[in-house]
Nucleic acid binder design. Structure first.
Lengths: 190, 190
DNA sequence: CAAACACTATACCGATCGGTATGGTCTCGC
DNA sequence: GCGAGACCATACCGATCGGTATAGTGTTTG
């Protein structure tokens, strides 16, 4: 177990994701990283700063993946499926990061510097809405692009949560396709 | 400020919802309830038991409302809208309870007696799926009732979260109708 | 060789936590 | 009138927390 900033960040991410901010002690993080407390406070001035660095990293990681997948080619349906599935793949590949972000969004128990995850979400929605808007302008679709984007984000989030909590395989490409098809074609007969 | 069990429960709900389990101290709860620590430990044996009592109450509250709304009459579309909006109304009427439940679901930081909110969710899904199943059996709808129920629950949860975090009026009957219509009719033109 | 850096090991600080002990004061039902 | 329950006020316990102080070690860089 080598020391160094990287080892601290990795251990901290894991423990924060596991226990949340308040219940994760610096002692435990140090032990898991194979270093001592003065070393932690040498690299990061405080627990809060360490946490903040992790939050920024995690958001950047997922946003980068989304940007890449949104530039993909293909017809509308395929693009929507690809964007959704790309997110699934990232979540499946790095469940610790997902859990970490969830905990941070849903537990404001500390007076942290208020990282603006709402704005981050809005940017994602705008990106998705752009894809829908193209479909509407080309005459393929009808409706409000932002509302469609919201619906897809909702289903996506729900699937990720379901996977996280039950361990069920809800993050497959097939599931992504089902979501998109439901959104496109609805469920009324005929 | 009268004492009593009710006052403790009310104050505890508010403070747990505000700060999460770990960061909410018994001292603060006692102060808010206008009682002293021995009184709290007189009524509830421990912080954990107090919390557990609140969780059970909150789940029962929302589940009761859902059961009532699911028995409503009308055509399929109206019933779906009513069920969805009933949930919105409950969430709007008691945002503290919603926040409390969210914090409890997303913060396992304590070794609590593992209240089974997954099973609770599954029961809700089954209830919603029943409504969709009727529509499928009568020939009105096509698709998997469980999947449709999941989609509606996802949109519903997302709207509640959006309302909670941004304060936007996302919990209207109109919004409920939009969700149901999207689910029924999709978004492809023609 | 010396200064700077990246630590280690240990021990401590003040604050806060959940929970309890002590000892008293009301108000009720029997 | 008397005991039981529902508290009050205060003070304390041991544990744990974030963070720091002290003193020393090995490596790198000029």
């Amino acid at each position: 177990m080598p020391g160094g900033k990287a080892a601290i960040l990795e251990a901290a991410m894991r423990i924060f994701a596991d226990k949340g901010y308040a219940a994760a002690s610096t002692r435990e993080i140090c032990e898991a990283a194979g270093i001592t407390k003065p070393a932690l406070y040498h690299h990061f001035g405080s627990k809060e700063q360490l946490f903040h660095e992790l939050v920024i990293d995690a958001f950047a990681y997922f946003h980068k993946g989304l940007l890449r997948s949104a530039r993909a080619q293909g017809n509308l349906r395929e693009r929507l499926i690809n964007v959704t599935f790309a997110d699934f793949r990232a979540a499946r590949k790095d469940p610790v990061r997902v859990l970490f972000l969830l905990r941070m969004v849903f537990s404001p128990e500390e007076r942290r510097p208020h990282f603006n995850y709402i704005e981050q979400m809005e940017r994602e929605r705008e990106l998705l809405a752009g894809v829908f808007r193209e479909g509407i302008e080309s005459g393929e679709l009808r409706g409000d692009p932002k509302r469609l984007a919201t619906a897809l984000m909702a289903m996506r989030l729900f699937a990720i949560l379901e996977n996280l909590f039950t361990g069920r395989a809800t993050l497959t490409r097939r599931r992504a396709a089902e979501m998109v098809d439901l959104l496109l074609e609805g469920s009324v007969s005929g």
